[in-house]
Amino acid sequence: MPREAEISVNERAFIQEALQEKIRLDGRAFDAFRPLTLTFGDEYGVADVQLGKTRVIARISVEVTAPLPERKFDGIFQIVTEFSPMASPAFEVGRPTDAEVILSRILEKAIRRSNALDTESLCIIAGLKCFALRADVHIIDHDGGLIDASCIAVMAALQHFRRPDVVVEGEKATILSAREREPIPLSILHQPLCVTFSYFEEGEIFLVDADLAEEQVRQAELIITMNQHGELCQIAKYGGATVDPLAIVSCTTVALQKVKELTKFIQSRLEEDAKRRNVGGFMAELSAENAR
């Protein structure tokens, strides 16, 4: 399996020297994210995120199934991330790399275990029928920042998605199609977002949203997940160089500011998309003529 090509000593030394002079290769501030674009598909629940050169697409899909016996009152929600050679030749289908395992674990903790999605609202008939929600994360282009971009994509897709409405009469449940009744949004309790911090110079310098070159030079990585209310969902540091605990506290302050900005950004994109759809729907209703 071809491993990720390692960076040359010249590039490594240059990046480190530049950081000491407070310079990042693309001229960004140390706490700045790369340019971020978020677009939605025509169907509900598909979010396409471009973070610098990194591109991630998340797609939400739903089906009806029986709930888990030990969680009769909950629906099912799973997040699947499988890397493919599209993102980088170092990725092999079916053979998870460390990066893939970490991404999977972080998204699991950040979104599923923090109850961002109210799984009780997915229950149709306790113990018999529930909605099973699935988030597929596709890495399209890899230039670092996969965790941050994937989290944005999944949260945006969840908020964009509309599930079919249900009518329950006693023991009978009828799933209404989109024609019969407008599909309804998911019950999202809070919006966790991840901010990855990369450490250099024995923990003296940290950067937000490292690109691939910076990732290869960094000495440690800290992933903080929180929502816009300042509630911390998870902090992860998998080995690497030691970092002063007080530095971590200051990172959470930076993370909160970033999360607030990102949350506002996602919200504005969702509103724009809603307007775009409404315009079409509204005008179609007004017009008496059918499209020829």
């Binding site: 797609r59 499988e82 599209m86 289908v93 699935r134 597929d136 596709h138």
Partner: peptide, 9 residues
């Protein structure tokens, strides 16, 4: 050749 569907693996 790898074909990856829209939903699922």
């Amino acid at each position: 050749v790898h074909v990856r569907p829209a939903v699922g693996v």
